[in-house]
């Protein structure tokens, strides 16, 4: 295994995935190794974390904020916060759940500032991906119904249904008791159902 370029990271920390390009994106490194190196002042190691988790983080931020531009701002701010707080990170823990706490804090601050979602057309799809089993019409309807929910409800429902987190994982991720997860999931689903059957969505039979 060889790593070309002038980067100062050890070869054994990487798994070389592609011969093309010389970016850290093309390699894999343990998060704990990257974090240790960040703590030692190696900024390039932080790039590994950003490139590894940015897509997931943007997806989560979009689900909370229901707005692509705001989500990008929130994720960038959250990564900056994480970089500055990395010294306090316990390397025995996983990076992403810790980062997610920072991210959702950023998202909810932004959501509190922007009470109403503006600048998004009704048919803009920012949360759901096209899948073969689902008609485009259903996707638009569900996306619009989701956008009508609160940020917290959207977060919980998308973590449950799109990421498939268990109740226990949801409780840990959102730092709430298991009973609260059950209750909020029920109320969130009920509200989503109400939105879906409301005449304005035109899908009353679903």
């Amino acid at each position: 295994m060889s790593v070309s370029g002038d980067c100062c990271l050890d070869e054994e920390s990487f798994e070389y995935l592609s011969c093309q390009g010389d970016t850290l994106a093309a390699r894999k490194m343990d998060d704990s190794v990257a974090i240790e190196r960040c703590k030692a002042g190696d900024k390039e190691a932080f790039r590994h974390l950003v490139e590894r988790y940015q897509a997931e983080a943007i997806g989560h931020a979009v689900a909370i904020l229901a707005n692509r531009e705001d989500a990008l701002d929130a994720v960038q701010d959250a990564f900056l916060d994480a970089y500055q707080a990395l010294g306090r990170f316990d390397t025995s823990c996983k990076f992403y759940p810790w980062f997610y706490t920072i991210l959702r804090n950023r998202c909810f601050k932004l959501a509190a500032r922007r009470k109403k979602n503006v600048g998004l057309a009704l048919d803009d799809i920012v949360i759901l991906a096209p899948v073969s089993d689902v008609t485009p019409e259903d996707r638009v309807t569900l996306e619009r119904a989701l956008r009508e929910l609160s940020a917290a409800e959207r977060e919980l429902l998308t973590l449950k249904h799109l990421d498939g987190l268990s109740y226990q994982e949801l409780a840990e991720r959102l730092e709430i008791p298991l009973g609260t997860v059950m209750s909020r999931l029920y109320h969130g689903r009920k509200r989503l159902r109400e939105k879906l059957v409301s005449p304005s969505f035109g899908k009353a039979k679903r």
Partner: peptide
Amino acid sequence: LHDTNKLFSSQQRLRYQTDL
């Protein structure tokens, strides 16, 4: 609610390729 769950569970999260 089962119907709504079924509709939701067949969806996937949109994946963004933006390089931050």
